[in-house]
Design a protein around this nucleic acid. Structure first.
Lengths: 238, 238
DNA sequence: AAGTGGTCTAGACCACATT
DNA sequence: ATGTGGTCTAGACCACTTC
């Protein structure tokens, strides 16, 4: 496999935790033992364990050892997901995901979009507006802008499936990170219609700027979530 | 100073970015040059730069170099804050922070609290309920539970200031991480009263379990935020 | 005192982009 | 072809807990 050694080690230990081979509150083998087991140096093993710390799965106690955190397995699974960059389709991989495309056009970048994407104000961008559904329930209205000179050749069929899949698999680009801001507000009448909500239902608004591994911002999006289907989990360090 | 070398290097480079000595979109010195400048090895410099990547300040391009991300300075400052663990008092360090203590008692841990804190169901915990204000505006209602055998000697005076300050400075404990879940919902009449909100105003609800560096969960809390004063920013990798 | 994880080094080799 | 950042090693020393 093409994975790095420390990722392979992390994956192996993670699956052992999730399978219950390493049980909650139980001590993991010492770093030294893991070094021998995986034929790796201390730095490499430490890097693997640090990934799991960032995911919230384990805790390290200097002078004492490394322990599996005592939270329910289900919690763990969700925790890991939210620290990683995942599109809507990947997040609901085990459910039926569909999209209603409200708008798909090419426009001059509005000021806010141009600013965040770091492109000229009159550059062209794809403007995409979709209602995203899980098991035919509308959960999110997503407005997305991508520069046409970065994400080339986008077609309507990609919108009905997964845009990220097209970017990574067809275009061969690598997504590196995203800056995300979460806000809360009241819903508009139009949102209530699209998401089948009541008049005074609130929404969660997620603003996102996503970057490729070459530093280029390739997406500015604003997603409006039904409040009762929205939950964001994260691990904060230090 | 007691900081590690890689943190010192990260701090130095971060301040140079924030001061504009390294400008946006500009290339940083190569890792090799930074090694010489700071008399450090490659791994140490890399670790420092990786901190800044996680903060969303810079981007590394393999085979090419390291560059300052092109976002406004103000954005940068906020970004850094939300990836770190900060209490309410520290978050609004430049404003007038006050608290109205609604409840301060010792109770048997309710089931949900005991579960998340990983203690016996009938253990005693402090139950704290505070309205937290900035510049005399009520922004958050915080319900907080802490095991009395972990956070010892808590007094009402600490609640009116900063509990985290007491934990870290007076008790000498080290906070390691927190698991945070953000949800959105409608407000109750009581919340509307405390936070001076209108009838149909929504709220952001933040559930948090915080851990010491020895892995002990020391806090379970549920914070209800005025929707118009709530914003959560984060950087998601990969 | 012994043993843990944390940091740091100097150097090796690899993957990737272009000066 | 050269030079970038990414990974990995083997070993050193330090900080902390108690195996």
């Amino acid at each position: 496999m093409g994975l790095t050694k420390y990722r392979e080690i992390a994956n192996d230990i993670r699956s052992k935790i999730l399978k219950g081979i390493y049980k909650k509150n139980e001590q993991l083998p010492f770093e030294k033992e893991l070094c021998e087991k995986y034929h790796a140096s201390k730095m490499t093993v430490k890097k693997a364990l640090d990934l799991l710390v960032a995911e919230g799965l384990i805790v390290k106690k200097r002078g004492s050892g490394t322990f599996v955190k005592d939270i329910q397995t289900q919690e763990m699974q969700r925790m890991m997901l939210s620290n990683q960059f995942r599109g809507f389709t990947a997040t609901y991989a085990d459910r039926k995901v569909s999209s209603i495309v409200l708008d798909f056009s090419v426009i001059s970048a509005p000021e806010r979009v141009a600013t965040y994407l770091n492109i000229q104000k009159d550059s062209f961008v794809y403007a995409i507006r979709r209602v995203r559904c899980v098991d035919d329930q509308p959960l999110v209205i997503e407005s997305m802008y991508m520069p046409i000179h970065v994400i080339t050749g986008l077609k309507k069929e990609h919108l009905e499936a997964s845009v990220y899949k097209y970017i990574e698999e067809d275009l061969g680009l690598k997504i590196q990170s995203a800056h995300r801001t979460i806000r809360v507000r009241k819903s508009t009448a139009e949102e209530q219609r699209h998401l089948r909500m009541q008049e005074h239902d609130p929404v969660a608004e997620v603003e996102q700027v996503a970057f490729l591994d070459n530093g280029q911002a390739f997406e500015y999006s604003l997603s409006v979530h039904r409040y009762d289907a929205f939950e964001f989990k994260t691990v904060i360090l230090r």
